[in-house]
């Protein structure tokens, strides 16, 4: 499906726009269904959650926690910018208020906003190639990009630097900087695998700029794309019943 642009891209260094388009296409799908684990390490505790996730288009997500046992059945439903959490312990669904969107999702280093906001690199950012990243040496076989959010893109960072493998055109890392040029977080992509017909990194690690804050690692165990997910999954009723449709 993506072969045609990929061929063009492989011939020479792609244009920035083509590359951003390509990065957007990597994870985009009509729908998806995946199993993943999320390992959260903080100064004070560590825990691993096993989760199942469904998505439809760009704006619907349903995430169900399977383990640990205490959390099993906890679920998050997101429709557009609305977000709901279900807790089996209290058998209740709570809407996340806008004021809490910058808060942590499930205690991880992902914010609720990270779950809710669909970022389209090619539309929300303008990019340019860099010869070397602003920290560290340039590696062979790597393309470096600086992405600047469009004025209409409401984010707390003012610049993202990313490294993309020149051959596979897969992302290697993204570094987020604030207006004062401080590193806010680093996202590292690794373990490229074939999943659901796509060859993509299966591990994503989110590391806050302050390393003392720990890190979150999300590993996709399995994923199926475009296999058809019922719209009923993305409903409050499904959330209340503990998911699993």
């Amino acid at each position: 499906m993506n072969l045609f642009p990929l061929v063009i891209l492989l011939v020479s260094q792609p244009s920035v726009d083509d590359l951003l388009q390509h990065l957007d296409e990597l994870y985009r799908s009509e729908d998806s269904h995946s199993m993943m684990t999320m390992e959260v390490v903080t100064q004070h505790w560590e825990r691993t959650l096993e989760m199942e996730a469904w998505s439809s288009g760009e704006d619907k997500t349903f995430i169900l926690v399977h383990s640990p046992a205490r959390e099993a059945g906890s679920a998050t439903l997101r429709i557009g910018t609305e977000m709901w959490n279900y807790s089996p312990a209290t058998n209740s669904t709570v809407r996340i208020p806008p004021s809490m969107m910058t808060g942590s999702w499930m205690g991880s280093h992902l914010t609720n906003n990270d779950i809710v906001k669909e970022i389209t690199y090619s539309e929300d950012y303008t990019g340019e190639y860099l010869d070397t990243p602003s920290s560290g040496e340039a590696e062979d076989g790597m393309l470096y990009l600086a992405l600047y959010p469009e004025p209409s893109t409401a984010v707390v960072w003012s610049r993202i630097e990313c490294a993309v493998n020149r051959e596979t055109l897969l992302p290697q890392w993204e570094r987020y900087y604030d207006a004062r040029d401080r590193l806010i977080k680093t996202i590292t992509f690794s373990e490229v695998r074939e999943m659901g017909g796509r060859t993509i990194p299966s591990v994503m690690r989110i590391q806050p700029g302050d390393e003392e804050e720990g890190s979150t690692t999300v590993t996709w165990e399995e994923a199926i794309f475009d296999a058809g997910v019922s719209e009923d999954v993305f409903s409050l009723a499904n959330l209340q019943s503990g998911g699993g449709m």
Binding site: H44, N85, V94, M106
Partner: peptide, 16 residues
């Protein structure tokens, strides 16, 4: 009302 939070061991904490 329902309260949702996180305990000091990272587990989710909730109560009606």
């Amino acid at each position: 009302l329902v309260l949702m939070s996180q305990a000091v061991d990272g587990a989710s904490a909730g109560r009606r």
